[in-house]
Write a protein that binds this DNA or RNA. Structure first.
Length: 447
DNA sequence: TTTCTGCATGGGTCA
DNA sequence: GACCCATGCAGAAAT
């Protein structure tokens, strides 16, 4: 393999020839972009420059501005409207406050607005909603944001949504198999049930079990990735997983379950796992919908965590798993992908370290990735993430953190069975995907 | 004795 | 210099 680095932008792939004229060392998220791509990115013209002919362009419902909704680079530039369609971040800001705090905004900022935005749930199906494209949890007010602050304040409880059967079913406390969960949180969980938090999370979005499909067809999601990677080894051995994180607050219940026609609770973003090959990157995202043109906060993901997956890989996954549940864990040899059934938007990736893949059963999550794409946690105990494969096999990971030098170190605990089952090793790469409001996670092996 | 859990440490990276 | 994160380590718990 050549050691020559190329631009992270798959549509460019210029060699990062540091000896050529004009080359300048970039830092942070631009470290692996060539000058041309970095400039386009900095100027907010990345999609216009590289994705102009790609599908996924949609109009802001408010101002009519064309927004590219089909790639990882641009998905922070719009906000999903629960009633369907999208709104550019500028208009969205006019509609409701996006707090500068990277943490979840307080419900007081969202609640007065969200009910209005949610009121049309009865007349819009999920595919329309999901069809707006991927977005970080923090940008999905109807699903998480309104509950986000509560998530910090309220205990969480995992739940499961069975989309294959077309019915939502809650994940009951006594089904929590994780020993640590039972040991540490049983009391709290009971309390959560009593206070109603268990209601939250399920969703109107899954009524047809096909969330995201329409959008996939419409937008034909294209991820900014290089074409270099390929599936390796046994692409035939596959299986599916869905991973659900859960929990919503009583406020959510009030908010969401009161929506006419949405008797079922809402689903939380549901990551998926599967195996596929590696590609190259797209940019990930900025919290709270911060426009890319603005000063970039330090919360942005570093290039090393940018997801890498090729269009071919996405198409392969989509083609092979067209009718699985809304989220699935896909197995390919040496790869594990958390994804959703038709639309895959990689959010970030991480190469498994020896300790991640070791017997200790703890997978260290990049801090920014964890804080960006996972629900916020205020307690070191964190919250459970549930994974279910297409055969019904379930995994529960505990998403938690340790205090570390006045900071936090985020980990997924209880991953050993999954790691062993998938025969993952150090050097494999995990990628977090997002399908509309769902997360997905991919693990793959470096060539 | 082994495994689990929580925290500390130090090298690497970034601003 | 600050921060991140891979890893080590010690004490607790389980077998």
């Amino acid at each position: 393999m050549s050691s020559t680095k190329v631009c992270f932008n798959s549509n460019c792939k210029d060699a990062l020839d540091r000896s050529r004229k004009g080359w300048r060392r970039r830092t942070g998220e631009f470290a692996d972009l060539c000058d041309r791509c970095a400039s386009a990115y900095e100027e907010g013209k990345f999609c216009e420059t590289f994705h102009l002919n790609a599908s996924g362009w949609r109009c802001c419902e408010s101002c009519g501005k064309q927004i590219h909704c089909g790639c990882i680079v641009s998905f922070h530039m719009f906000v999903l409207l629960d009633a369907g369609g999208i709104e550019c971040i500028t208009c969205a800001r006019k509609s409701f406050i996006l707090t500068p705090n990277p943490a979840w905004p307080p419900p007081s900022l969202f609640l007065p607005v969200l009910p209005e935005r949610n009121k049309d749930f009865s007349s819009k199906n999920w595919t329309q909603i999901a069809g707006s494209g991927p977005m970080p949890w923090r940008q999905a007010p109807s699903l998480f944001s309104s509950s986000s602050a509560q998530l910090e304040l309220q205990p969480r409880i995992p739940f499961e949504v069975d989309t294959r059967s077309g019915s939502d079913r809650l994940f009951s406390i006594d089904r929590l198999s994780t020993a640590s969960l039972e040991r540490k949180t049983a009391d709290k969980l009971s309390e959560r049930v009593m206070n109603g938090s268990l209601k939250l999370g399920a969703s109107d979005v899954l009524e047809n079990g096909n969330a995201g499909i329409n959008w996939a067809e419409q937008a034909n999601v294209r991820v900014n990735v290089p074409q270099k990677s390929s599936f390796s080894k046994n692409d035939t051995s596959t299986s599916h997983f869905s991973l659900a994180v859960s929990s919503l607050s009583p406020n959510d219940a009030n908010d969401q379950t009161k929506v006419p026609g949405t008797a079922a609770p809402r689903p939380t973003p549901t990551p998926v796992i599967g195996k596929i090959g590696a590609g190259l990157s797209g940019e990930t995202q900025i919290r709270n919908g911060r426009p890319r043109g603005e000063a970039r906060p330090r919360t942005q993901l570093l290039p090393r965590y940018w997801p890498r997956i090729t269009d071919q890989e996405l198409q392969k996954i989509s083609g092979e798993y067209p009718n699985v549940g809304h989220v699935s864990m896909l197995y390919y040899p040496n790869h594990m992908v958390l994804c959703s059934n038709s639309v895959f938007t990689p959010l970030f990736e991480k190469m498994l370290s020896a300790s991640d893949a070791g017997r200790i059963g703890r997978l260290v999550l990049p801090k920014k990735c964890a804080e960006t794409y996972f629900p916020p946690i205020s307690s070191p105990e964190g919250l459970p993430l549930k994974v279910q494969d297409s055969k019904g096999k379930e995994w529960i990971f505990q998403f938690r953190f340790w205090p570390n030098n006045n900071s936090r170190m985020y980990v997924l605990e209880g991953v050993t069975p999954c790691i062993q089952s998938m025969q993952l090793q150090a050097g494999d790469i995990g990628v977090m995907f997002q399908l509309a409001r769902y997360l997905a996670w991919r693990l793959t092996v470096l060539p």
